[in-house]
Design a binder for these strands. Structure first.
Lengths: 261, 261
DNA sequence: GTAGTGAGCG
DNA sequence: CGCTCACTAC
């Protein structure tokens, strides 16, 4: 089974590229982030016409996540509060979480807040959001030994995940507090699928639109699959497909594909 | 000699279509309207690389005219005040007029104000603008017997120039006052090149983007070539090329080509 | 419906 | 840089 994460930066703008890619890469589950569209306007039919099932949680202009699955998913839910009813409903105003189960694997598709700048209000929100995510995953782990969390984490855990033109410690997406918050989550029992197969640096999944970052390969690896041990064992490959980033009018992110046997 | 008028509705958005058309139709002079770009940002090189000379008068966001000529033009000037220095400079704030001479023919490329709605302030401006245009042409006629005025006139003179789903008299671009203002200009000594060759209706140069007007052929003939007698005699054809309007992301106008022997 | 602008975001 | 929105124009 192939599970893909791809921040498409507007599904309406990127629809043709996503459909072309999916036609050539008929993966099992495609996890999209930053769809930037309300559910009523999500372009479902191009996916259903390819034989996929579509599960979405979107809003106007910002955020938005989607699960596109060849087989129907079960136990689909959007947001934190579906799993953690005690939470304030405000935690689900931003559409950043959707989950479903396929073949006994719970897939959690995430769009982690960007955080803007270290110390900003949005930064503090990002850190709080990650503590809620930890609680959410902790709950899911009670009933699901096989969990794949994937998405745009907006965090690079190690310096080899970032080009060397940047001082990680002082940069959003690489600060101590962000990395620690993510490590606290992984300590629940998740491992980075990509690092099972690739130990060297220089592999990135996002390049800033500005400063010709892609041409100069000034990238970051911030799109991840984190697997519980039973799945990590079964992981057969984890590949970043750089090609979509080379197209004209690309997303700033490119797809990452994990294959689980 | 072939002289073309084409309201391109943004030369930056339409550049590829215009260049493709010009490559396949290597006309002598291409008169563009609604270029919607300041002179510094006009895409000159695609035209110069085809061997054309470029003369422009543009502004930000609105209006803008250009003369694209295979041979260099002489006596090029933009605006009314270059010819009528007594006018208030405000008359040239909107970039709607450019003229130049080739082979003894003075070409006047116009983007007549749209007028918005009958009775509006913009409507009154359109009518006043047409009286200034009359004065401008009257002056030019003193020294040039061979004049071709062409462009987007935003006026359909006869009911056969408009599809029949509209009540002309009450419609902007067809009101009595607009038609009379244009007739007052033509009485200086200009004749409609298109009507030398085609007497029947149903030939249009503009279709509203809205209401699927092109598919239903609900068009207007508002892009014209008006010729002084010496040129009218020499006119060999006047053709509306509907094909560019059929492309994806077209201008709402399509080119009109007059051939002068 | 399809251009343009400017602001907000990342 | 490239996406959103809300606005304006035609």
């Amino acid at each position: 089974m192939k599970i893909v994460t791809w921040n498409v930066n507007s599904i309406r703008t990127r629809l043709e590229q996503v459909i072309n890619w999916l036609s050539e890469n008929p993966v099992d589950v495609l996890c999209l982030q930053e769809t930037k569209v309300i559910d009523a306007d999500f372009p479902r039919s191009p996916f259903t016409e390819l034989g996929y099932h579509v599960y979405i949680s979107g809003q106007k202009a910002y955020n938005g996540v989607a699960l596109i699955s060849r087989q129907p998913l079960t136990e689909v839910s959007a947001g934190f509060t579906a799993i953690l009813p005690h939470l304030e409903p405000e935690w689900d105003e931003q559409k950043r979480v959707i989950t479903g189960v396929i073949d006994g694997i719970r897939i959690v598709n995430l769009y982690v807040p960007n955080g803007s700048a270290i110390g900003s209000e949005k930064y503090e929100f990002k850190l709080r959001w990650l503590t809620v995510l930890r609680e959410y995953l902790q709950y899911l782990l009670k009933s699901h030994p096989a969990i794949c969390i994937c998405g745009d984490f907006n965090i690079a855990l190690e310096s080899i995940d970032i080009h060397d033109k940047v001082n990680p410690e002082n940069h959003i997406m690489a600060s101590q507090a962000e990395r620690q918050a993510l490590r606290d989550i992984l300590e629940l029992g998740f491992a980075d699928a990509f690092r099972k197969f690739t130990t060297e640096g220089g592999h990135y999944s996002w390049w800033d639109y500005r400063t010709a970052a892609f041409r100069r390969n000034l990238g970051w690896r911030i799109d991840h699959h984190y697997l519980t041990p039973v799945l990590y064992e079964r992981a057969k490959s984890c590949i970043i497909d750089v090609n979509p980033r080379k197209l004209t009018q690309p997303s700033d992110h490119t797809p990452v594909i994990v294959e689980i046997e």
